[in-house]
């Protein structure tokens, strides 16, 4: 199954592209909240591209007759499942904490509904 290996490589390359874009955004974006948006880029498709590519690689190992492919398959899948459940919670909590801690961008927000409603001082 040569074709399965090429498809899995293509998925990993897509993941590398998005991880690269996220890293560049993390280094270039002007303020902390925009950097969070770029880091979401890494933790979604930068991760899932490689995880889906790894799953397809494990399937190709099974097709070629290696027993090890099954171990890989049942252990890579939970990593993707856990990160799709947990990463948004971490992102949400760190964004809220950043706002309450007093992190503000140098350039003002276009509109700031949260500050008006929750912290009207």
């Amino acid at each position: 199954m040569e074709i399965l290996r090429y498809v899995s490589d293509a998925f990993v390359v897509i993941g590398i592209f998005f991880a690269f874009a996220g890293t560049v955004g993390l280094l270039r974006m002007p303020d902390a909240f925009c950097r969070m948006q770029s880091s979401t880029n890494i933790s979604t498709l930068g991760l899932y591209g490689a995880v889906i590519g790894g799953l397809l690689k494990a399937i190709s190992m099974i097709v070629e007759g290696y027993e090890l492919g099954w171990t890989m398959l049942v252990k890579i899948a939970p990593i993707g499942l856990f990160s799709i459940l947990a990463n948004p919670i971490a992102g949400h909590s760190i964004a809220k904490a950043a706002y309450q801690h007093g992190v503000r961008p140098e350039k003002e927000f276009v509109c700031d509904a949260y500050g008006e409603d929750e912290f009207d001082d």
């Binding site: 560049v24 303020d31 979401t40 880029n41 979604t44 276009v110 509904a113």
Partner: peptide, 25 residues
């Protein structure tokens, strides 16, 4: 997810860095 990822990746890689951030309700 793919659409949003492409959008943010394009913003991060473009030289002008077109961001317009704000908090909406």
């Amino acid at each position: 997810l793919l659409k949003a990822n492409l959008d943010v990746a394009k913003r991060a890689l473009s030289p002008a860095l077109p961001v317009n951030p704000g908090i909406v309700k």
